[in-house]
Nucleic acid binder design. Structure first.
Lengths: 339, 339
DNA sequence: TTGAAAGCGGTACCAT
DNA sequence: ATGGTACCGCTTTCAA
């Protein structure tokens, strides 16, 4: 493939001039520019991005770290980040951290050693302190799904508390009084916030919060099944179960059906995240939309603006609203045949 | 960050020697090597992959093209490709083609202009001829999900015919005689092959193939619903519906339930692909596993071997077996209450 | 507005 | 086994 020298020669100019027309910033006489462009197209010239990176000390690479590449949670986000950044001429390098602290750190080091100009991190296990430290090295990054006060401007989160609140409130509005809650692991901030929202909704409705009605799961469907078993065994069983995420909600649905319970008549179930399969469960799952994809796009915009100094006509928002997605798994309780 | 000159200086050797220990191939005296390594770790040195790429004319980048990034079909494959290639020190650049011929070609050009050493292509709309041409330019690539005779060695496919055969055969073995088939769009090779497998199974069982029992869909769930409506309207309705993919199968399940049909008692449904949500439908979906992830890994190995001349201790296989995954949506037909 | 030339941080060939 | 050095293809001063 042709290089910049050949273009320069063919156009009868120096390579510096060719470089100028490639980059479009510096002034080049219109005539010269046309000659150069002609030469470029005649030769089918494409600038070598690697050489550009080396010379300009910007790789045009953005590294993404997600916990898992497979599974439905991140794929939409990856898609939207990729689209946004590719339109801006950036390359995306994707790695997985597998919710393991060591692997997450390795992945970050890998991305740094790739010379990424910036990172977008969806971390699970790394401490806030580590990220604060990272921000002091000259590594530019955005964080999704974590709120870290010292670097709040680069954190993009959904309003988890609000989401938890909405979920439980919608159950209350349907008339439920005995509402079980299956939480994610409470060492995770999002799980704590969702639970807090649940409590706020109860309180607002004058329902006393009873810790017995909370089961602490691990965000996997098996713990949804276990959580159902626990809540089902309580003296006064619940008519609705609100779950910290959709995986656990599907676990509840499975276990409840196995126990011969009709849903939603005898038991309402609410999830969180609104994953793709929420439509496919039976009954289809009422859930809280987690705008992870929008958050990714926003993080990408933030990077284009902050790191690449591009003008993206976007207002950077750090906190995203949580919204109900109503499907079939939530209905009025039927007390006379309560679980 | 330190560069190779600083390492050389600190170790008291030339940069050529440092380069040798980085690459590990050429011989370096043990003592020298240790000195260099010491210097590297003292300086926290990491070779600049961009400079390496420029100098060596290999970018260590592998480009991936999938139709969509979101959605469950490719995400497992992406995960396994990423793992395989990252372990080999390669970077993965991922793009989406959105099943559009123009966009797919653009994406390929983009990947080429990224200086990818090799591509892995999951294409939907591009013609075989284009790919054969591409193979004559000096672009190295593997193809997933397409069999192209001229370049068969770099194509990795599942045995679609066998999959279609297995699906229908399993229905026949359960006792079904009236078996509807909802095909993917027949301009797609995989759809044609799956349908052909269906026909072979019928023929083998002595069941006459009746084109009236075939509905041609588009691989989306809506066409599953439409296909159900059509098959359901036939004079002699079917007791089982075999679908060209899982999306259409979920469409069938939805529409059938809406029509008040009990599954699997009154109607068995079989999918193809075994996507993640096959477990979550109700009844859970019996399907044909599409080892897309294994195919991706194999394509990655093929690239490591062919393009990067690495010894991966793997036998390269181009054709992957299709396997049944038995769940609840297939059972014996109940004729006296047939649909 | 244009050109000359010095890097960017490596690789790889040729000597020694 | 080691060192010297010419690139790789581009960006970016600095001069003209």
């Amino acid at each position: 493939m042709a290089n910049i020298y050949q273009v320069a020669e063919r156009a009868g100019v120096s390579l510096a001039t060719v470089s100028r027309v490639i980059n479009g910033k510096a002034k080049v006489a219109e005539r010269t520019k046309l000659r150069v462009e002609q030469a470029m197209s005649e030769l089918g010239y494409r600038p070598n991005s690697i050489a550009q990176s080396l010379a300009s000390a910007t790789s045009n690479r953005v590294g993404i770290l997600v916990s898992v590449l497979d599974g439905p949670f991140f794929s939409n986000m990856l898609a939207s980040i990729e689209t946004t950044l590719r339109d801006a001429g950036k390359h995306v390098i994707i790695t997985a951290g597998h919710s393991d602290e060591v692997k997450e750190k390795e992945a970050i080091e890998f991305l740094i050693s790739c010379r990424c100009d910036a990172l977008i991190l969806c971390i699970d296990s790394i401490s806030d302190d580590y990220l604060v430290d990272l921000s002091k090295r000259n590594v530019q990054f955005a964080v999704i799904n974590h709120q870290i006060p010292q670097i709040a401007d680069r954190c993009f989160i959904v309003d988890n508390e609000q989401g938890g609140y909405l979920a439980t409130k919608s159950a209350i509005e349907k008339g439920h009084k005995q509402i079980g809650y299956i939480s994610g692991p409470t060492y995770k901030e999002d799980a704590r916030l969702r639970l807090r929202g649940h409590q706020r909704a109860l309180q607002e409705a004058g329902i006393k919060f009873d810790p017995d009605y909370v089961y602490c799961g691990d965000y996997h469907d098996s713990s949804g099944e276990a959580g159902f078993a626990y809540l089902h065994s309580l003296e006064k069983a619940c008519t609705a179960i609100v779950c910290g995420n959709d995986d656990m909600a599907t676990g509840v649905i499975f276990a409840a059906r196995r126990a011969g319970i009709d849903m939603p008549q005898q038991l309402s179930v609410i999830g969180f995240d609104d994953l793709i399969f929420a439509r496919y469960t039976y009954p289809s799952l009422t859930s809280i939309e987690n705008p992870i994809s929008d958050m990714g796009t926003m993080a990408a915009y933030w990077i284009l603006q902050t790191v690449y100094k591009q003008r993206v006509g976007k207002v950077i928002e750090n906190m995203f609203e949580a919204k109900m997605v109503v499907r079939d798994s939530l209905s009025e309780p039927i007390y006379h045949q309560s679980v």
